[in-house]
Amino acid sequence: MTKIVNHWIGGKPVEGASGTFGPVTDPATGAVTTKVAFATVDEVDAAVAAAQDAYVSWGQSSLAKRTEILFRFRALLDANRDAIAELITAEHGKVHSDALGEVARGLEIVDLACGINVQLKGELSTQVASRVDVSSIRQPLGVVAGITPFNFPAMVPMWMFPMAIACGNTFVL
């Protein structure tokens, strides 16, 4: 039986309703090993709505809390890098060393996101002109979306979502 990958919306799996699937083939044999459910407009809307709902609290969460979660994600990613590389090899045909390199490049951005709290502090410049002070604050934007290419399934998404999440945004991939 072919494995089916459905959606992840609002913190739980959601079976695709479109009835349309994209095949994932084993590059070595050409056999279809997995089917990925294509989303309906309603499912995309539900994912965005769930991200908007999550943003209400996540956008107000402290830098310390976001950093703590990102460090836990980083630890899980590091502990499972070989298994992730195996999936990339099975689904995309990259040799294992290239797939491990892709995970490593993604981990570099997760590392950056874990330390972003310093860059998010904002700035204050006093007396930039006579009796004029200038300040800036950094605030999350809201829901951020990423559309990524097929040929870097781990690295390119990790160039996007860790930074968005670290900055207090929610993310739809």
Rank of each mutant, 00 (worst) to 15 (best):
I9K: 14
P27N: 10
G106F: 03
A28T: 06
G168Q: 06
D42S: 13
V172Y: 04
E91G: 03
F161A: 14
S135F: 15
T20C: 04
V41P: 04
E102V: 01
W159Q: 04
T126R: 14
K3E: 15
I165W: 08
G30M: 14
A17T: 15
R72H: 04
G106M: 05
R74P: 02
H7C: 06
V14E: 02
C114E: 14
A49P: 09
L173T: 10
V5E: 14
G10S: 14
K121D: 07
C114W: 06
T25W: 02
A129W: 10
G22Y: 07
I147H: 07
W58H: 00
T148V: 15
A17C: 05
A104R: 10
L120A: 07
G115D: 08
K65S: 11
G10R: 12
T34Y: 03
A28I: 04
T170Q: 08
G30F: 15
A99Q: 12
K121N: 11
A50M: 09
T34G: 05
E43G: 03
W8Y: 15
D111H: 06
G11M: 15
V5Q: 12
L173P: 08
R138G: 00
D111E: 13
K121S: 09
V143A: 06
T33M: 09
R81L: 07
V103Q: 05
N169W: 13
D82V: 11
A166K: 13
Q52L: 08
I147R: 08
V118C: 00
H7K: 05
L63W: 09
V156D: 00
M155K: 01
S125V: 01
V95T: 10
V41M: 08
R74V: 03
I88S: 01
V24C: 12
A54S: 12
I109K: 03
E91C: 03
H96F: 11
R105S: 00
